[in-house]
Design a protein around this nucleic acid. Sequence first.
DNA 1: TAATTTTGCATCGTGAACGATATAATTCAA
DNA 2: TTGAATTATATCGTTCACGATGCAAAATTA
Lengths: 146, 146
Amino acid sequence: MRPEFLLENQLCFRLYTASRLLTQAYHPLLSEHGLTYPQYLVLLVLWEKDAQPVNDIAKRLYLETNTVTPLIQRMEKEGIVTRSKGEKDARQMIVRLTKKGWDLQVELVDVPTAMGNAVICESVNTETAPELFKMLDDIIAKLKTK
Amino acid sequence: MRPEFLLENQLCFRLYTASRLLTQAYHPLLSEHGLTYPQYLVLLVLWEKDAQPVNDIAKRLYLETNTVTPLIQRMEKEGIVTRSKGEKDARQMIVRLTKKGWDLQVELVDVPTAMGNAVICESVNTETAPELFKMLDDIIAKLKTK
DNA sequence: TAATTTTGCATCGTGAACGATATAATTCAA
DNA sequence: TTGAATTATATCGTTCACGATGCAAAATTA
């Protein structure tokens, strides 16, 4: 068999696996507060800047609106955000944090550090992380054609 | 806002995004042959060693059987694999490649190289790839508790 | 201004992921 | 050997992802 067909030689499989396992590691920390990982990502975006249209949130996460719309509708049902038509542009749906959405920022304050520690190992540490970030950023930049 | 809450500072988001975008890059190459990326992963496992029980395939991919079972059922429906009860252990479901499954190996022979080239950039190349692989492998090893 | 194109969002269908649960076969222990 | 625990797989429900499509509002162009 050609060596390229070996799972061990494939970058995508590593990214796919590492991503899934790390998301799984977030699970207990987030489900405790009724959140999924993609919902947590939306919160990160809104904590940074509240009252954004669906499209801006989607772009920030490199997702399509057909993924983000139902996701945010579920968050609305949970009372984490509100959705209301844009005043300047009636096509836009502006997403705003509720008090509950802001409160979650306090409740989840230790999550980033906990997750950072979860991956610290011989080859990935405060010294080498920038290199890893650079490589992943370059891969993302190369692949996002839109 | 605490800097840890910035999307830019989070490893998981990078892995999640890079994984999704790279899987999307596989899409045109695979859908042409009626395959999805996870189905392609199952083929990689079976090309390496045919006639494996569901559990071995799942373990190799770090997935649960409740993900792999329906996935393989779909592949069976497409005529890519067959499923039959294990003779030694009647609980096992042995998955075997059909002729169509083996033929796909020839049809997809250029995929690994094409995907490798798709991510080559300044910081990720033949020289630096081993470092990236090592870091991702260490992260995976640290996270797979089972 | 009227007609056309583009944009922003929503809906639908399909295929993962994955927690929870069920079932049958095997193994282990009393 | 019988009963209990374990193992291998399957099923179910929910939530992403994402291609395809639809629709209304806005922007562009004739």
